[in-house]
Amino acid sequence: MSLQTQDYLARSGTNALTPPPRARDAQLKVAKLIDVSICIGCKACQVACAEWNDLREEVGFNVGKYENPLNLSSETWTVMRFNEIEENGKLQWLIRKDGCMHCSDPGCLKACPSPGAIVKHANGIVDFISENCIGCGYCVTGCPFDVPRISSHDKRAYKCTLCVDRVSVGQEPACVKTCPTSAIRFGTKEDMKHVAEERIAELQSRGFANAGLYDPEGVGGTHVMYVLHHADRPELYNGLPKDPKINPLIGFWKGIFKPLAAVGFAVTFAAAALHYLAVGPIDPEEHDEEEKS
């Protein structure tokens, strides 16, 4: 694991003047490609994720939906979302495997105040280094995809690691390994884009004119990409944002506001010091009787 600490392209809570160690950055970017058009919703990926990562969600209740568990949590890092869309008298069952998108410009990392709690590796994987996590939940507010979850047990943030432990020893993520229809593929981002192109061409030839790749520019592209039959309307897939961006409030809070506040402190302290040097203390003992009566 220590070798992985030499390929940080970005590290949370770290000043740009003191960048993290990144000499080992001659790496190809990786990506997971999820082809929703051949996903059968079997949830094997959920099971593989829980198996490999030693996660066990509490057994919940059937609320009349296919989602199970109902949502992401600190013990559920991926979950299948099922949406029934009725259009032109036709029913479409859209299934999307939800989880961390591993953004090239990760909002969680930008929002995180704890040095080294969130890192971006040279291969594009965004990972939470939990020993540095303080459980403040800022990452939750930075994420455009609503992915990170704070554990109520240990008060730390969790999400998909893209199986960074497997990838770093040349294996594919557990969900990819287990997917029975090869709806989830893994490789270099370059290769995955080629695979996606072929799938999109096939979908278009079958009448899905708006089939396309979901690799949103607003977050610098992602290292988890989708092939969608309706790429023009990603919202159909359980509210996948059409143009995800880090919220501008995060940009203000983590950007210009910090130097402004620092200047505010400096100016206030300087004003007090200069004022005291110019006017001096007001001491009643030195004023004697002049104001009496």
Binding site: G135, G137, V140, T141, I150, K155, I250, F252, W253, G264
Partner: peptide
């Protein structure tokens, strides 16, 4: 306040509160 109250509110509300919190604290 994580992990007690923040999960009860929409993320957009929590985000706004964190920014207002730091503004008013400064």
């Amino acid at each position: 306040w994580q992990p007690y109250f923040a999960p009860l509110f929409p993320v957009s509300v929590v985000r706004l509160c964190l920014v207002l919190h730091s503004l008013s604290a400064i």
